[in-house]
Each structure stands twice: as C-alpha cells, then as structure tokens.
Design a protein around this nucleic acid. Structure first.
Length: 281
DNA sequence: AGTCTTGTTCGACT
DNA sequence: CAGTCGAACAAGAC
C-alpha cells in the first residue's frame, strides 16, 4: 500500500536515474482500465514522442510533465501499482498493465496485480485541487492542523481523508496515532491541545521516518511495494503497531489489538492508547 | 467454490 | 453545504 513515503521514495528514485529529458518512443497499454477517461489508442498517441520534463509528487499522486505539452500525467498506484525499469523487451508478464519505451533503450514497466491503479491525462487539475495540505510542507502548521480538525468526528477517518491532509494511508495513520498515544476511535472534539500537538508531531515523524527508510514493504509477495529496481523498503521492520496484532506493544508490552474503524482495519495498543477520554460528545 | 479481505475514491445519503 | 457511509474495483487467501 504505497503512501506518501513510498511515493516520495519512488519519485526521488525516478529523478535520480535520469528519466528527465528522455523521450517516450512507444507506449503499450495491456489493461485498458488502468487508463482513466481515454481509450488506450488516444492515450498512447498523446504520450508518444513526448519528452519527460519533470517528475514530482502530490499526496499519493505521481506527476509527470512533458516538454511543450499542455497536459500532465497523474498516476495513482492504489494498492499494488509499481514501476520497474530495465531493458528487457520480453512478453509482458501477467500483471504488467502499461509499458513505456524510452529513447535510451530502457523500458518503464507498470505492474499492478489488483488493477486498481489509474493513470490520468484528463482533469488532472481537478484532482490536484481536491487534495488537502501536504503534510511535509510548511503549510502544515499546528495552527492549520487545529483549524482543519474543527467540526470533524473520528480522528482516524480524518487522517485518511485526502481532502484534509494528502498522503497519509492506513499504515502511517495507525503509526502516528500510536506514537501520539491516541485511541483511533477518539472523537476530534475530545482531543486536548496537548494531544493535537503530539499528533501533529507524530504525523511528521512517522512520514519522515518512512522516507528515511525508503518506504514500507509489507508481506513477502511481489504484489507489495518495492522500488523501481524491485528492491523492498526498510520501514516494515520499524513499525510499532501496523499489522502487528497480538505482538507486544514496544512501549508497554500490552498485546496489540485490531479493530475496524471507518471500515478500515486499525491496529493500536489498548493500554497506552487509552480511550477513557473519548466520546465527550 | 463461495466468502472474506484489502485501500481508495466516488456517489449517495443525512 | 458539509460530513459520513457504503459501493465498487479485482484478485488472492482461506
């Protein structure tokens, strides 16, 4: 489940391996519905002969821009989307959805086992404008965070809603709540100023740590996050609660519990993320 | 072999 | 209008 740190890692990597300035010589779409809004032919035609000008990130979206092109390309990996770069012009593997041939002989393969990922060339401004604050930007001040929290209900669904903050997903939401010692069922209006401050700090800390560790690769199957060379990240070894049901809490040794909050699997420590203060509504 | 799980966005509902 | 909730997407695990 690639979230902000995984996307950031991937984008930095793509910048570092000199994709900028390369020309797209050919595009092959193997799974039509990975392309939003356009037919595969329209999509292939629009991208062919374009020169990659920049690669960046906003929330969980990857943004490509092209020289002299009036459009940009927005990619969301959803659960299992990933890129691999090599020079192997072999038959597409069963989960390869799109292939981009570059003018230096390398090939960018887009793999997506679950087929949830989407590539957009249309309405991209609308998508970007709908996103909330970038949590690692200056904009994400404690004051803004407090303002954003006003009138919202449960804290965990708030963190996952991309209209509030852009880029946090299930892994980093659970980790941040654990770090701030806040129970995931807590209502926003029950949070004390101190707790909000700790949560603000925790969000920054878990995201930065994820980037420092080059992302989180869950499980052991190829469906999970890996970088453009197929290497796994390192952050999964440093998680404190996510997917650690039954393991001892690193802080107090209490067994980590799993519940459902806002239809999402949620992991927390029932001892140090105490819910006694909650439900003051 | 059907049921459940998984994350995100979108549309429907309140 | 703003917030919340369920559906849909697809495939693998059980």
């Amino acid at each position: 489940m690639p979230e902000l740190p995984e996307i950031e890692t991937l984008v930095r990597e793509m910048q570092n391996i000199s994709l900028i300035g390369l020309k797209i010589v050919k595009v092959c779409v193997y799974w039509l519905r990975t392309i939003a809004e356009l037919t595969s032919e329209e999509f292939e035609n629009k991208l062919t002969h374009k020169i990659i000008e920049s690669i960046s990130r906003r929330g969980k979206w990857i943004i490509f821009t092209f020289a002299n092109a009036p459009f940009s390309l927005l990619i969301h990996l959803r659960m299992t989307g990933k890129f691999l770069l090599d020079s192997n012009n072999l038959e597409p593997t069963s989960h390869e959805r799109i292939r981009i041939y570059l003018n230096d002989g390398r090939i960018l393969h887009f793999i997506d086992q679950r087929k949830f990922a989407k590539w957009h060339l249309i309405n991209t401004d609308k998508i970007l404008n709908s996103l909330g604050i970038e949590p690692l930007s200056k904009e994400f001040s404690l004051k803004t965070f407090k303002q954003l929290l006003k009138g919202k209900r449960q804290i965990k669904p708030f963190l996952l809603d991309q209209h509030n903050l852009a880029g946090i997903g299930n892994i980093y939401a659970d980790e941040a709540l654990w770090m701030a010692r806040i129970h995931p069922l807590r209502t926003v209006n029950s949070l004390t100023d101190k707790e909000i401050e700790e949560l603000h700090y925790a969000i920054l800390t878990v995201l930065k740590k994820g980037i420092k560790n080059a992302g989180t690769s869950l499980g052991s199957t190829r469906a999970n996050y890996s970088n453009i060379k197929g290497q796994r990240g390192g952050n999964q070894n440093q998680l404190n609660v996510f997917r650690l049901t039954g393991s001892p809490c690193p802080r107090c040794q209490t067994s980590i519990k799993k519940i459902v909050v806002g239809q999402r699997g949620t992991h927390f420590c029932p001892n140090c993320q105490n819910e006694n203060l909650s439900y003051s509504m």
